[in-house]
């Protein structure tokens, strides 16, 4: 009887604490998302691919985002890429090339810029939209979260995420379903962008799959701004330039 009681108590504890832990973890993830970016914003970014010999390839992009999973991006330079645009609606992604004149579907695994960043990194929506927290550790320096993708269409199956005590993201390791480390993202140089946006201004990524290559994403301006839902549609991709003020 004692054993049965003990089993019932343990089961009850598990049922009560399991969801509570999961809720805590997912709430923390939402707060980390909120600190990383306003829910709706516009931003200018530079993407830099650095080769082992030091040569660089650079792209400047204008990005707009709304809600948890709507994002559009316009290439401003170099001239060879100018006018290209990408759109993400949840798991749907499209690429618009001015000469082609229509958007084509792309996947989160591809890379429109080459280098270590793929489309999922460049068009990153809220982590809480794509992942659930499966493990949460708190220590003196901050948090370590283990995340699992909500479905198979997400680019990385598992993430390990480090955040400070202030819930500011500092590092992410991306893993495949088989547990292989695909890449590491490091969030650096915290900057006050104004309008209460304080976040890392540089993201560096490297990958064991691209030895000695480094890709860097630099944020220049991040401003909260709201947009109509229709901005995030295929027909609007050729007109994103008109949003810049």
């Amino acid at each position: 009887m004692k054993i049965i009681n003990l089993f019932l108590i343990l089961t009850l504890l598990f049922l009560l604490t399991g969801p509570a832990f999961s809720r805590d973890g997912n709430e923390l993830l939402k707060r980390i998302d909120e600190k990383l970016m306003p829910e709706s914003y516009e931003a200018y970014r530079k993407l830099i691919n650095i080769e082992p010999n030091g040569r660089k390839k650079e792209f400047v992009v204008y990005t707009v985002k709304k809600g948890k999973d709507k994002m559009a991006m316009l290439f401003l330079s170099p001239a060879s890429e100018k006018g290209r645009a990408t759109l993400r609606l949840g798991e749907n992604m499209w690429l618009y090339i001015p000469n082609v004149g229509k958007p084509i579907r792309i996947t989160s695994l591809q890379s429109v810029t080459g280098g270590v960043f793929n489309n999922a990194d460049i068009m990153q929506v809220d982590y809480s939209a794509e992942y659930n927290v499966v493990k949460l550790e708190k220590n003196e320096t901050g948090y370590l979260l283990e995340l699992k993708a909500k479905n198979k269409t997400v680019a990385y199956d598992k993430l390990k995420m480090w955040a400070t005590k202030d819930e500011i993201l500092i590092k992410i390791e991306c893993y495949s379903a088989s547990g292989m480390l695909i890449k590491t993202l490091e969030f650096k140089e915290i900057k006050d962008f104004g309008n209460d946006v304080v976040r890392p201004s540089v993201i560096e990524t490297h990958s064991p799959l691209y030895k000695d290559y480094l890709s860097v994403m630099v944020f220049s301006q991040v401003r909260p701004r709201t947009f109509k839902d229709e901005v995030f549609s295929m027909n609007y991709m050729s007109r994103i330039e008109g949003l810049r003020k």
Binding site: Y44, L76, S80, V218, S220, Q221, R244, K245
Partner: peptide, 22 residues
């Protein structure tokens, strides 16, 4: 220095004709 950059036709974007091509 490496990480600072100019935004093409920047923030104070004025009405202008932009030319490009190949």
């Amino acid at each position: 220095t490496d990480y600072s950059f100019e935004i093409p036709s920047s923030e104070s974007k004025k009405e202008m004709l932009e030319l490009n091509g190949n």
